[in-house]
Write a protein that binds this DNA or RNA. Sequence first.
DNA 1: GCTTACGATCTGCGGGCGTACATGATTTGT
DNA 2: ACAAATCATGTACGCCCGCAGATCGTAAGC
Lengths: 143, 143
Amino acid sequence: MPDPDRDRPDLGAMVVRLGRALIAAERPVLAAHDVSMWGYVVLSALADEPMRTQAALARAIGADKTRIIGTLDELQERALIEREPDPEDRRVRLLRLTPVGRQLYASVRTGVRAAEEQLLSGLTSADKRVFLRVLQQLSPEPD
Amino acid sequence: MPDPDRDRPDLGAMVVRLGRALIAAERPVLAAHDVSMWGYVVLSALADEPMRTQAALARAIGADKTRIIGTLDELQERALIEREPDPEDRRVRLLRLTPVGRQLYASVRTGVRAAEEQLLSGLTSADKRVFLRVLQQLSPEPD
DNA sequence: GCTTACGATCTGCGGGCGTACATGATTTGT
DNA sequence: ACAAATCATGTACGCCCGCAGATCGTAAGC
């Protein structure tokens, strides 16, 4: 009786390949809306809930805190997010989506989900359900 | 009836998080054997089958052909691989593992697999089987 | 033989990223 | 009041990567 587990590629190799396929599939969607990868990630994080500090946002999306500043600058300039000093602690900037930003995010996300569905289209619905549930279970929340 | 599919994170976000967790889990294993990530990938590719050209190897592992030269130099210096001019076409270098290289690869792979099993240890065996099968189905072979 | 094509290698460019450090504004603890 | 901590920001360094030539040796077609 053969052991399929011994012959499969490394988990890491498969995840990397899937990641590359996802990036390739989603790049056109992002480009169509003129949003960068990091921009989309920021919009996604802020759509879930507004953030009280930029450091918290950086932690939430697994980015360096200096790296997201440029992204925030651009999103703010396009009026997709608001970055307002907290009246109670004027060191911190309250971050939230504008209505326009929320709308754009919804559009991009719809496209991203469609691209993902395309990649998953070869699966049975049972396999897809298990796969997505397990993947969610295995992808750790950032501290 | 709630729709769990609408609330889940993007597939891309989950894959990236899982990838980071895998890298973190496997880094100590690689360091213990003094092998770089690229080195391990090369050993893995050559363990499957010897390669007739370095360009073919680069394509197989999704790396730039100039990138792998340094990796091959190091592996050759440690006598883990052989890089011999093809007598029939002396432009190309035949690449294959040495017995030592095959042995080291087996050790590292055992450690890598153990780290991966650790990450998967929270799953039921049915979930794990489906997840790995689907993941393999979704991770495209490089051209 | 001569031209063209191919493989390996080296070098340099530009971009993305993480890290560290410095600064200025502001809050907090004593 | 004063010192220490916190937050956003800017700057600079180094690393890794993909990509585009340029070079050299070799092979293949004419």
